[in-house]
Write a protein that binds this DNA or RNA. Structure first.
Lengths: 91, 91
DNA sequence: ATATCAATATCGATTTCCGATATTGATTGT
DNA sequence: ACAATCAATATCGGAAATCGATATTGATAT
């Protein structure tokens, strides 16, 4: 569970997200993640029951939207707490 | 530059640190880092000029203390700012 | 000398990540 | 109807990071 996972869960809780949007979001915060890293992570998190997938047709293209699950929210809270612990150490 | 690096720089700024102490410190915060990961990182950060090494005899054993360098402080500040950016996103 | 002990170092195996390229699939133009 | 288009997603071989079990170090005590 790295920073990327936490961010995915966080945004997937606020609204439905999709891959390339998430890539752009992370890039804006200085995190250049490769698509070859992100997409497998999204799949894995779906299989693990942290995300729900819904396919939507947007401008004639299929886009896969992910939303957080109840289990994902639990994991997010745990990860948030842990990240905060670490962060307050160094701030 | 992951979280581990930031923590190393942070603690090496406050006081001289050594490998196994750092391992314990991270473990207490739920980060189980392998010695096989940490020691090469310390060496690398020394070569990169972020840490200064000083060997000391403690209870008849040689211990290698690391302190942050001026360059390391610069890097730490940058990393701290970036980490804060990311953290305030998810808090 | 040699046994001891914590700390440090090593290295082959595993896992994770990169990034260039391929694939997908509904729409548009002809 | 069919090919071209385009953004989004998927793939996969290579590179890099990490693991963890084991080896090494070196001053001290016996």
């Amino acid at each position: 569970m790295g920073f990327i996972h936490i961010h995915i869960l966080h945004h997937a809780k606020e609204e439905a997200i999709y891959g390339s949007w998430m890539l752009e979001e992370l890039r804006e915060h200085g995190y250049d993640i490769s698509p070859g890293t992100l997409y497998p992570i999204l799949h894995h998190m779906e299989v693990d029951g942290l995300l729900d997938k819904e396919e939507k047709n947007v401008n004639g293209k299929i886009r896969k939207y992910y939303r957080i699950t109840t289990q994902g929210e639990t994991i997010l809270e745990e990860a948030r707490t842990k990240a905060y612990e670490l962060f307050k150490e160094i701030k």
